[in-house]
Amino acid sequence: MDIKSDEEKLKELFEVEEKPNFNKAVKRAKIFSIIRTTIISLMMFIIVSFVLFISNDFILNVMNNKEEDNLRTLFDIAMPNAYIGSIQIDDRIMVGEIDYVRYRFLENKPITDGNYKEGYTYMPLINGAYGDMGQYLFNRHGKSSRDLNEALNYNKAGKKVMKFYHPSIKYENYINNLENIDKIGSDKLMEISLSFDKGYSLEEVKTMIPSDITLNWYWVDTFTKNDYYFSEKLIFDEYNVYGIKALDNQGDSIDNPEENFIDAINEGKDNNYSNKYKELFNNLSNGKGEINKEDLKIIGVVISGDSKSLKALKDKTYIKAATLGAVADKY
């Protein structure tokens, strides 16, 4: 029989009573540590998320302002008779989008020209994954590049895309929709692109267009003889020509429209929007370091009116080609 001493009995008594208390203390410490770590992690997550959210919003706001400026600058030198209407900004995580309505003028009547989008992002890996899907309603198919070049295209609103013929290129075929202008009802308004036989000054063009016809846009000769359009004898459409808007975004005539055109090229060149602006500046300035009004040779226009007024241009020898664009009800 094992007889324990009083000291051993006392030790066992204290071990039995102390052990559970110690385990409880350890468990409480672990739980407190987990709770504290969770709270700290949650607070850090909230702080970091807030900082990232504010940074994302700030960066995209700067980018959408720049993208809108770029877009408006582009419309000052290109996009014949087309204007930026209402704009909606949609900024998300790392990407954003400008959704805008485009419109044009038939005389002083504005008509919608479709909805268009421009995307932007500060993450190069997803650049181009969010934004516009192109200018055309659908892509044309043809047996040859010449067939594609001469084919009639439509934009997203179903409007005919106008064509332009450079006077220095001798084309096998020219479109002249003025010949069939009588087939369009007198209750319609329309836009037509006119391609001239040579370059004219702004003042000369103003006298060439009758006063009852609205002059919407001037096509400026911005090309050089080395441009591939010349070697391929390509027809231009309204998305690859540059020129001067004769009307402001309210449909009112601009007194000195060439100034907006020249300023837009200088702004684009100085802000590095695109190498295209530098190319336009170099082609038009002729090495002088600046673009003057006299450097602008007008080789075509976009005009608008009804069939009655436009018939006055049918037999003008300075018109090499005329292509119909938008058509809408007069009233």
Rank of each mutant, 00 (worst) to 15 (best):
L137Q: 12
V302S: 04
N249I: 09
L310F: 00
Y154K: 06
D315G: 07
V26M: 14
K276Y: 12
I47Q: 10
N56E: 12
E191K: 00
N249D: 13
V51H: 05
N127M: 13
S144T: 15
E259G: 06
A29R: 09
L284R: 02
L215H: 01
D212L: 04
N61G: 09
T207N: 14
A129E: 15
T37Q: 12
Y120W: 08
G243P: 04
G268K: 00
M208N: 06
S274Y: 04
F32W: 10
T317P: 06
V26I: 15
E279H: 04
L178W: 02
I46F: 12
I89Y: 09
E17S: 14
D252F: 08
P124Q: 09
E258K: 00
L313A: 01
D2M: 10
K320R: 11
T224K: 05
T323F: 01
T323D: 03
D295T: 07
I235L: 01
V48T: 15
I89F: 11
N286A: 13
P167N: 01
K109I: 06
G96F: 04
R146C: 04
A157L: 04
N155T: 05
F14A: 12
L189T: 03
N256K: 15
N139S: 11
K30A: 10
V51E: 07
N139I: 13
Q135H: 15
F14K: 09
R104Y: 05
L106D: 02
K225I: 14
